[in-house]
Computed example of a mutant assay.
Amino acid sequence: MSDDIALNERLKAKAVELGFAACGIARADAAPRTAERLHQWLGEGMHGDMIWMEARAHHRESPAGLWPEVRSVISLGMSYAPAVDPLALAGEGERARISVYAQGADYHDVMKRALKALARWLVAEVRGADVKVFVDTAPVMEKPLSEAAGLGWQGKHTNLVSRDHGSWLFLGAIYTTLDLAMDVPGRDTCGSCDACQAACPTDAFPAPYRLDARRCISYLTIENAGPIPHEFRAAMGNRIYGCDDCLAVCPWNKFAASASANRAFAPRAELAAPALADLLALDDAGFREVFAGSPIKRIGRNRMMRNCLIAAGNSGADALVEPVAGLLGDESPVVRGAATWALGRLDRGRFEWEREARLAEEMDETVKAEWGI
């Protein structure tokens, strides 16, 4: 066995020890079409308001665009395979649906700790090695690099699909100046299946392997800061943070065992099936307390309240009329606007009464539009 292969095997064994479910290695230039596909996507405006995607496109084009000295990329995946059906709450109107990945600990923190530990191990093993670690927040194209490193392939929903772990992998990367032995790239095995595209509630896939983020519920509930466009509100159902539908229906997930999931991502009881009435009662301090240690905390109370109000408006639940009406005077226009829409869906008589009482004092044009002015 060559020294390079032996190092790779020890590296992968250490990765498993640190909680990673998948580890592969690719040359830094192993995903040559990344720049072309990225610029086409940006040019068509499919990134929506995610302006940082465009601002740092030159860094995303290739690993060398971010760090010229990089020679190899170690791609790593950490499983968060769910133990229960992610679609189980689809018909529970008074309960909120939170994407599986956000029900446990913040993956940014968990992944970064493990990546740094693995990087330290590699530097200790190989004198002169230089490394940099990345997880999600850096301008790194993790999915094509992970495909090049053999972790899986980018499916028709544009997410990575693994034969062993399905669609439930958090991805991270270690860039290094070392010339490591390469793994065999992943091979697309989607075939004629279009389950992910057919399952999308908002038709966010204009074609296989292409995602229009502006139509994606994950983008709308997390990245979008303003009002949710009217055309997507009903389709959101009771989803308040992210959407798992395209991932959940992927046939490859039948091989994804929850036993391989990192225990840090086990769902917290209060986030697995939260009552909308409880969430609608949260002020800023309450929001920060409930979502402490969760990636959800990053979007802030107002955006979350907006999402919960859209879900309330879709619920048809009389019990949510008062919690919704209680937010008509919220300080945030985006919250007031969503509350107005939700009340109109739940109780038209109450909506008309509140309209007469509140409209004269409303100064925000977006909220006035929700009242029908």
Rank of each mutant, 00 (worst) to 15 (best):
Met111Pro: 10
Ser260Asp: 15
Leu42Arg: 10
Arg113Pro: 09
Ala292Asp: 15
Met236Asp: 01
Gln197His: 04
Phe170Gln: 11
Asp318Gln: 13
Arg120Gly: 12
Cys200Asn: 07
Pro251Gly: 12
Gly24Ile: 09
Glu223Asn: 10
Ser146Glu: 02
Thr202Trp: 09
Arg71Lys: 15
Glu352His: 09
Asp278Val: 12
His59Gln: 15
Trp168Ile: 11
Ala57Ile: 08
Glu36Gln: 15
Val140Gln: 06
Arg263Gln: 14
Tyr219Ser: 02
His108Gln: 03
Glu94Met: 05
Ile74His: 03
Pro185Leu: 08
Leu18Trp: 00
Leu320Ala: 08
Leu115Ser: 08
Arg120Cys: 03
Ala90Val: 09
Leu178Pro: 01
Glu9Pro: 01
Leu359Pro: 03
Ile222Asp: 00
Arg288Leu: 13
Met182Ser: 13
Ile217Lys: 02
Thr176Cys: 08
Cys196Asn: 01
Ala55Phe: 12
Ala235Leu: 05
Asp136Tyr: 01
Lys116Asp: 15
Val184Ser: 11
Leu178Ile: 11
Cys250Val: 11
Asp188Met: 06
Tyr175Phe: 15
Gly43Asn: 11
Val290Trp: 13
Ala204Asn: 04
Pro86Ala: 03
Cys243Trp: 00
Ile5Gly: 00
Ser79Thr: 03
Val140Tyr: 03
Arg37Cys: 01
Gly172Thr: 04
Pro144Ile: 08
Arg355Tyr: 05
Val321Met: 04
Thr366Val: 14
Gly152His: 03
Asp347Ser: 14
Arg239Tyr: 12
Ala81Trp: 02
Leu180Gly: 00
Leu171Gln: 07
Ile310Lys: 02
Ala88Ser: 13
Met236Thr: 01
His157Gln: 12
Ser62Trp: 05
Glu69Asp: 15
Asn314Met: 03
Asn224Cys: 07
Trp41Gln: 07
Leu282Ile: 12
Gly45Leu: 11
Ala277Cys: 01
Glu142His: 14
Leu220Lys: 07
Leu309Phe: 09
Lys156Ala: 00
Asp244Gly: 07
Ala90His: 10
Asp183Lys: 08
Asp364Gln: 12
Val100Phe: 01
Gly344Cys: 05
Thr176Tyr: 08
Ala31Met: 10
Gly48Met: 10
Val16Gln: 13
Met141Trp: 09
Arg163Asp: 07
Leu309Ala: 09
His39Tyr: 15
Ala360Tyr: 04
Ala204Pro: 05
Gln103Thr: 13
Ala369Lys: 10
Ile373Arg: 15
Met50Trp: 10
Pro32Met: 11
Pro185Gln: 06
Pro251His: 05
Ser258Val: 00
Ala138Lys: 02
Val135Phe: 05
Arg348Ile: 13
Asp284Cys: 03
Leu328Cys: 00
Gly191Trp: 09
Ala31Thr: 06
Ser62Val: 04
Glu370Pro: 04
Phe287Asn: 03
Asp203Pro: 01
Lys143Leu: 12
Val321Asn: 04
Ala26Ile: 01
Gln197Val: 14
Leu279Tyr: 04
Asp3Val: 14
Glu69Arg: 09
Ala15His: 06
Leu38Gly: 02
Gly155Cys: 09
Gly349Ala: 13
Ala124Ile: 01
Leu271Lys: 10
Ala277Met: 02
Ser258Asn: 05
Cys190Pro: 07
Lys14Tyr: 00
Arg33Gly: 10
Ala173Val: 02
Arg27Thr: 07
Ala57Asp: 11
Leu180Lys: 07
Arg268Thr: 10
